[in-house]
Each structure stands twice: as structure tokens, then as C-alpha cells.
Simulated scan of single mutants.
Amino acid sequence: MSPLPRPAVTGRALTGLAWAVLLLALSLRGGGGADGPAGDVPPAHGDIAAVGRPLGTGPSPARAPLPPATPHRLDIPALGIAAPVVPRDLDRTGAVAAPPYESAHSVGWFERGTRPGARGPALFVGHVDTATRPAVFHPLGSARPGTKVRVGRSDGSVAEFTVEDVRVVPREGFDAHEVYGPRVPGRAELRLITCGGGYDRAAGAYTANVVVSAYLTGVTNLP
């Protein structure tokens, strides 16, 4: 993939073109290296969202956004994902820095973006594998509309999100605004992103990203 412009980052959130370019530059290239990925990656080809469900009409009504609070844990019980959340910034290339491979069972949250539960899409990234084993988001491609995502937050609350669609987006030639912009203006949303598609051994990278979109539907344990 050819180099991309570096986004100008100001304030606590990115919007418009800077946000789209930043996300397009995600540095989630998988951990397989020259030897390829570890284990079998779940099938990840095309749009695997529920057929016939209009965008924004998920199985549960959206809840009003919450006051901002930082995340510390992410759980997707149906997929067996239970992981600590670590804040991440941009790396030297201008891409979101995924957690280091020695922490491949942690989920990275882009700390200069939206806090999960607040209005707008909050971004979480995680590895699908390392050179030797599956990583935290290895099962992510198996998510389906209706799957619950729970985020523990610093104010003591647990924000519950409901998956509305799952997409596999090629790295080349996609509409970043469509993929990463708000699905419904004013909602609290999540984007969970990992590697997907096929593995290009020559490039040492996956050919696509799995993008799971979810929106806030509940909250528990408020102080």
C-alpha cells in the first residue's frame, strides 16, 4: 500500500477527512511475517452483515450517549473475548499503533478519538494473530448482528453495545468515510478492527480489515 498523508491531529477527537485518512492508515498487518499467520483465521470475505436489515435498525433500540469515561476492559462473551484495554496513539508513520505483539491479548483504544459510550464512533484495534499463536481479535470475524460487546469504563459503568454489521474491507479502493464515519449521527458507536481477508506472503500482510460496527444499547453499574 502506498504511503498516505499524515493527518493533522488537534483536540480530543478527529473528524472529517483527517479521521478517514487516519483509519485508512491502520497498521494492523498481522503477526505472521514471512512464515504466514498462526492458526486458522475465521472466514472473512465480503460483507457478512445480516441480509435485509437496513442500517441503523438493529435488534435493540439505541440508548442515549453517556458522559465521557476512559475504557479499561472489553468483553465479547459470545466470542470468548475478554481483554484489558490499553490506550494507543499514532505511531511514527501516522497510523494508529496496535498493542505490541508481546501484549497481543490486549485491545488498543485510540485515546485521541471518542471515548466509548460518548457520542460518535470509538475505535478499538487488536491483532488477529502473532507469528506463533492466535491473538485477541482472532474470533472477531465470527461476530454477527446482535452480538453484545461490553466495555468497562473508568466511572464504574459497563457500557453495552450491540453489533449491527460486520464487514471485510479491502485495503485498496474503499470509501473510508462510509466505513469509519458515524452510521447514525448522534449515536454512541464502536468500531472494532483487526486483519482479515487473505494473507499476502510476499507483502507480509493481510489484504483486508475486518470491521465490526456496534452501537450503545445499555449501561449497568452506574455509580
Rank of each mutant, 00 (worst) to 15 (best):
P121G: 14
A83W: 10
R191L: 15
L14N: 11
T147G: 02
S2V: 11
T10N: 06
E164A: 07
V151N: 00
P185Y: 15
C195K: 13
V51Y: 04
A205S: 12
H45S: 11
K148Q: 07
E172Y: 07
T70A: 14
D35I: 12
T147K: 00
R150G: 05
P43I: 12
I48T: 15
I81R: 01
A50P: 02
D91A: 02
A78S: 13
H138C: 10
H45P: 01
W19Q: 12
P134N: 07
A122H: 15
P185S: 15
L190V: 06
A176H: 05
R144D: 10
E102G: 11
D89T: 13
R191G: 05
R112T: 08
S27R: 15
T114R: 03
P7M: 07
V179I: 14
A202W: 08
A18M: 14
L26D: 02
V86Q: 05
R201W: 08
A20D: 08
P65Q: 11
A8S: 12
P71G: 06
T220D: 05
A69G: 09
T57A: 09
T194M: 04
P185R: 15
V51T: 13
P100K: 08
P116E: 14
A49G: 15
G16W: 04
G196E: 04
L55N: 08
A78H: 01
G204P: 06
A38L: 06
T220A: 02
V179N: 14
L26V: 03
V212M: 03
R112C: 03
I81W: 00
D165E: 14
P100N: 09
I48H: 02
A13L: 09
P145Y: 03
P42H: 05
G117V: 14
F110H: 02
T207W: 06
G36I: 14
H105Y: 03
N209G: 01
P54Y: 05
V184H: 01
L4A: 11
S157R: 11
A25I: 07
V210R: 07
N209F: 09
Y215A: 03
P134I: 08
G80D: 10
L74N: 13
T93D: 05
A83G: 12
F161K: 00
F110C: 00
S157G: 06
I76G: 00
D75I: 15
I76P: 00
D165Y: 03
R115D: 13
V149A: 01
V184L: 02
A205E: 14
T220K: 02
T93E: 05
C195I: 15
V125I: 10
G204R: 09
A78Y: 06
P139T: 11
P170F: 10
A118E: 11
R92W: 15
L22R: 14
L24D: 06
P42R: 13
Y206H: 15
S213V: 04
A78I: 11
P54E: 02
P71Y: 07
T57Y: 12
G204I: 15
A131T: 04
L190Y: 09
L22K: 08
G117D: 12
G141I: 04
V51C: 00
V128C: 00
R115H: 11
P54V: 01
